[in-house]
């Protein structure tokens, strides 16, 4: 697995199971975690044929500020129900009122499994829209005459989606900048992370022309100056900046780009861990090889001189 999937596999497989023709409704009661302090509760509180899927996400109030409710309304419309207590957002699926066609069913399953992705997509969508309008405005000016707002771009949207890590999104008239702040729990991870990030940074040099520009540094980039909670100067936090250019922001590409970039942090940490696993397997193999060498190096039983009864030595004639 190179890329992480965007949807939640548990929701997907549970719903697929229940949506199958001839499936008998059974009660469900499962909690499930997800990346980034997200949790789900999938249950059948009322009757076996009514499945309730609830999402709790740490930064939900921030997401709401950036338009999450509209995005979720658009995606889930009539499925939305009163949020279950302890959760931020719930949808209900009635197995007796499923869409007819297989395609629609598959689409519904997929959509529900993407609940976290969609909630988190809101600030990105907002920023992408802002970019479009700034771009529109900028067309009317030369770069000098543009008013302050257009030249500098919009405000920075901050999403504190993990305890110590955040995503910052800023739209300008010619780009959208997405900055991840991330922390490594371990020195080893930091080293792996460095190498890994270098690959991102270099991707464009190596001919991946379409890749967004990536910068990685240990102090807050310019865009984040003056944002509350950001410590100036070099520190523990690594800032990874993605610059999305207009070609990434077209309506056709936008959904995919958002899905992709949302999973960046987890993708990044997944690969660091997978790399460690890989190095471990090399080390195990090395050890096994060394052990084999050692075994081979054991001195063979030396051939003793053989003598006849009278004391003469045997010689082997060729």
């Amino acid at each position: 697995m190179l890329l992480l999937d965007y949807g939640n596999l548990l929701i997907e497989s549970l719903l697929k199971d229940r949506f199958a023709p001839g499936a008998t409704p059974t009660s469900i009661d499962q909690i499930s975690g997800e990346f980034d302090n997200t949790s789900f509760h999938i249950s059948t509180p009322e009757s076996k044929s009514k499945i309730l899927i609830s999402l709790a996400i740490k930064c939900y109030p921030e997401l709401v500020k950036y338009g999450a409710e509209e995005v979720l309304q658009r995606e889930y419309g009539s499925l939305i129900v009163q949020p279950e207590s302890g959760y931020d957002f719930s949808v209900g699926v009635d197995l007796e009122q499923l869409p007819e066609s297989e395609e629609e069913k598959t689409d519904l399953i997929r959509r529900i499994s993407l609940m976290k992705r969609n909630a988190l997509a809101a600030p990105f969508e907002q920023a992408f829209d802002e970019f479009a309008s700034l771009q529109e405005q900028a067309r009317q000016y030369t770069s000098e005459s543009a008013p302050q707002g257009v030249r500098e771009g919009g405000e920075v949207r901050a999403i504190h989606y993990r305890e110590e890590e955040a995503i910052y999104i800023k739209a300008s008239h010619d780009r959208v900048t997405v900055i991840f702040s991330t922390i490594f729990r371990e020195e080893t991870d930091r080293v792996y992370g460095k190498v890994f990030l270098q690959e991102f940074v270099d991707a464009r040099k190596r001919g991946v022309q379409n890749a967004p520009q990536v910068l990685a540094r240990d102090d807050p980039p310019l865009e984040l100056q003056g944002i509350p909670g950001i410590k100036a100067g070099k520190g523990e936090v690594t800032y990874v900046t993605f610059v999305l250019f207009p070609r990434h922001l077209t309506p056709q590409r936008r959904a995919e780009v958002i899905s992709h970039i949302e999973t960046f942090r987890d993708y990044f940490h997944y690969h660091i861990k997978a790399s460690k696993a890989y190095i471990h397997s090399r080390m195990r193999r090395r050890t096994a090889d060394f052990l084999q060498v050692l075994r081979r190096a054991r001195p063979e039983a030396e051939e003793k001189e053989r003598k006849t009864a009278s004391g003469r030595t045997f010689t082997v004639k060729g």
Binding site: L2, Y192, V195, F196, E199, F200, A203, V208, N210, A211, P212, V214, H248, V257, H260, I261, H271, I272, A274, S275, Y278, I279
Partner: peptide, 12 residues
């Protein structure tokens, strides 16, 4: 290891 190779990022 794949961190040297899978890091193509979006669209890589």
């Amino acid at each position: 290891p794949s961190f040297l190779t899978g890091g193509a990022g979006p669209g890589g």
